[in-house]
Design a protein around this nucleic acid. Sequence first.
DNA 1: AAAACATATGAACAATTATTCATATGTTAA
DNA 2: TTAACATATGAATAATTGTTCATATGTTTT
Lengths: 121, 121
Amino acid sequence: MIDRHGIECCDTVEVHEDLCKIVTETMPSEDELYDLAELFKVFGDSTRIRILYVLFESEACVCDIAACLNMSQSAISHQLRILKQSKLVKNRREGKSIIYSLADGHVRTIIAQGREHIEEA
Amino acid sequence: MIDRHGIECCDTVEVHEDLCKIVTETMPSEDELYDLAELFKVFGDSTRIRILYVLFESEACVCDIAACLNMSQSAISHQLRILKQSKLVKNRREGKSIIYSLADGHVRTIIAQGREHIEEA
DNA sequence: AAAACATATGAACAATTATTCATATGTTAA
DNA sequence: TTAACATATGAATAATTGTTCATATGTTTT
């Protein structure tokens, strides 16, 4: 049995083909897989996770977050942009400041599940 | 008010300092933040997500997974190594093959939450 | 109006990473 | 033992990404 890369494959052909059939049926679309990976990439940076932990406690403006995390305004602003693009965070203007807050309950759940996994392992 | 980067910060000093205090208390340790980010990075690649979707259906050997996803054996093997390091996947030998399977229920939960978030947005 | 404040953003650089290619390791069959 | 099979892995390359620096945008105060 030869796959499309020209590599011979192991001999359990029946199981093999059944599995491929089921998988191609249940696998999300290319677009959705891409979006999913993009979403998890956003969680894959400790600066962004720290920002989310700040917002777990309270909404906050950019300079508050920067001060709490002891990082530059620019770095935080760039990261907030990414968090906002993936709709994990929303913002509103209040005078000169822009106040950021969590957009969604999923953020907490996803991070909680991640921590559980790590603690178990 | 000047933060440690020498940038002037906004004027709401009281709220500001209270928030910083609470945040530093509730924020996980540096090590745990790093581990968390590392874990989510693993989900942040569509090839690895596809591999997980294969394993949602059934345990499978490397060449089965490669064939299902139409990718090279080497690419899949490299990615399985990363999935195993983060304990999302486990393996056992069976003759010439190495059979991979999900290590944990958290994998399904985390991916399900991710999909929910995307569908809502 | 100008000055000060708060945030956003483009360019650049360093660091990380996914895949390919070649090859090594380990298992089974002849 | 030798050949074939299944998987793992090191090196190399291309692509992505986080931060800094400089500067732009938008708001408020004087």
